[in-house]
Design a protein around this nucleic acid. Sequence first.
DNA 1: GTCTATACTTCGATAGAC
DNA 2: GTCTATCGAAGTATAGAC
Lengths: 216, 216
Amino acid sequence: MASVPSSRRIGSPDSETRTQLLDAAERLMREEGYAAVTSRRIASKAGRKHQLVHYYFRTMDDLFIELFRRRAEENIGRFERAIAQDGSLGNLWRLNADPRGAAFTLEFVALANHRKALRAEIARYAEHFRSSQVEAVRRALVDSGVDEDELPAIVALLMMTGLAQVLALEDTLGVTAGHDTTVEFVGRAIAQLEARSADRRESGTPSTRDDAPREG
Amino acid sequence: MASVPSSRRIGSPDSETRTQLLDAAERLMREEGYAAVTSRRIASKAGRKHQLVHYYFRTMDDLFIELFRRRAEENIGRFERAIAQDGSLGNLWRLNADPRGAAFTLEFVALANHRKALRAEIARYAEHFRSSQVEAVRRALVDSGVDEDELPAIVALLMMTGLAQVLALEDTLGVTAGHDTTVEFVGRAIAQLEARSADRRESGTPSTRDDAPREG
DNA sequence: GTCTATACTTCGATAGAC
DNA sequence: GTCTATCGAAGTATAGAC
């Protein structure tokens, strides 16, 4: 664990080449799975020699962590911006239903199973993302007049996440029976909840949006 | 695709040793992920020489396919027996919520991403399993007097599957916030549906269970 | 910053002895 | 059925020249 320093030179994190290597790695991971992400194949895809990968990343673990981290941060930022602009249930579902995110998660969780260094990183991200999301869902539900007992925010979120994940997973296998029906069903269910929200606003009930979004 | 015969001798599928090798491979996969499943590590875990793995399996693809197939068949059998005995929603949820199944699926789907031979096998299984399950869910819903428009069987099934998957996936990461709440919620929702079913029986409406439970 | 050269490891697979 | 011997390919990593 207490890694020996190792005097080896390491390239700057700001390097353009480094970014290209990470891009190549990410493409490989998406297209062929994590086992295809090797220093040689990354370099080949980026038109470089494989030793250059080791110049920019001390170990492959470092590379994977970096790969995960930059996408995770981008993801959190994207979600938070989108939610700030439109925190409706419909938008939350749209964001979660993006199959790219689910496929990415899937691959990294499988990876974490045998790269311990990644596991901690992924867990930390998962927790951060979860608490940020659950808050948004909670606000959206309160907005629609859904009581916490009727449907707890965490349950709604796990259902959305789970559904998105299964759909994405099956898509990669080419199994898509019932997917349209399901997406449609969820869309309708959300529309109904949002209609409730509109009713409340018309009848003068103030949105809870204004008062108590404490936590986090 | 049209694999060259290759004159190499291959061991009998009934061999005891072969089963032990498969068991060792399965344990490796569960504990350390698919990348740890190599001929050498399997053999070592089974107290054999690595060449013996190649005696029983022409290629590693063959081994993975066999590994998947025997678990898949066992799984389908177990589900069908359990459902024949108790086809209630509650039991269907219990079966799906078993985290072992979800973890297994996850690893193999990740594997399928770079082992094309496995992909077809997994897709075929997924479709078979899906249609068998959706039929069971449909019967259970009809039994509870839930209309297909109110909640299509495929939607209920994908929700159960997705939820089970997310819970299992997060468990492996050590992220379990809200899991209890969710399991409890689902349990209560199902109990409510099943109460409806009981009401119907008491009021004399015949259960559909009696007429059409055909299937081996 | 990128390359050549190189060391060491692990892997899948085959041939052939016993 | 299991072993020894052996191959070539691919992986991670380091040192040092340019």
